[in-house]
Amino acid sequence: MIRRLALTAGFALLGAVAFAPNAHAQVADTEPVPFTGTVGSVCTLSNPQPGTLGLVDVNTLDSNVPDSDPSGGMSGSITVNCNSNSIISAVVDENPEVPEDFDVTTSTLAATLSSANAGFTSNTPSEASLTSSNTDVPVDVDLRVESTTPLPEGRYEYNVTVTASPN
């Protein structure tokens, strides 16, 4: 009986070895995954600094004109950074905070952009071309309020919206 058991165990062992899976080295396959994209033109505006309106010298004909340039007034500013050539424009808010008896229909508002940066060219007082890319460009923003009637006493508050649009 031991002989039969030994013979059976031998056949079982021989069968296990004979039918064992063969180990084969596998060859790695590679394939790149491509990525594409386009970076669009982008402008960022930062660091807005408020300006102050002051009256033009009383000895001039424009003594009734609040302006951010004369003594007592100060230009506002904003930093513009674009990654391509761009147009910068300034528009004065149509809903200022002014004294009640101020007639806005008799006034003219003018925003002016200027910069000492060489990449900045003024097209009109309220529009400019920016040719430098990826550089912070400080832009001065001025506001002038002209009125055909005397200005009433009180607080005048305007917003000038600056927009930078890639070309």
Rank of each mutant, 00 (worst) to 15 (best):
I87C: 01
T106I: 02
N95P: 02
S86L: 07
S107V: 15
T106N: 12
E100R: 09
T112Q: 08
N117I: 07
S89N: 11
S84F: 06
N83M: 04
N85H: 08
A116M: 00
F102S: 13
A90S: 07
S115Q: 07
P99F: 00
N81D: 06
I87Y: 02
E94M: 09
A116Y: 02
P96V: 06
E94V: 13
N95H: 10
C82T: 04
E94S: 15
D93G: 14
P96Y: 03
A111K: 07
I88Y: 05
A110L: 14
T105H: 11
S86T: 12
F102Y: 13
N95I: 11
T106G: 07
P96D: 03
A90N: 03
I88L: 05
P99S: 07
V80Q: 06
P99I: 05
N95W: 01
L109A: 08
D103Y: 00
L109Q: 10
C82N: 04
D101N: 15
S89M: 06
I88F: 00
N117C: 02
N83W: 06
N95F: 10
T108V: 12
D101Y: 06
N95K: 13
V92A: 06
E100D: 13
D101W: 04
I87H: 00
A111G: 09
V98H: 07
D103F: 03
S89V: 09
V104S: 11
S114R: 10
V92P: 00
A116C: 03
T112Y: 02
S84E: 13
T108L: 11
V104N: 09
P99W: 01
D93L: 04
L109E: 10
N85E: 12
T112N: 06
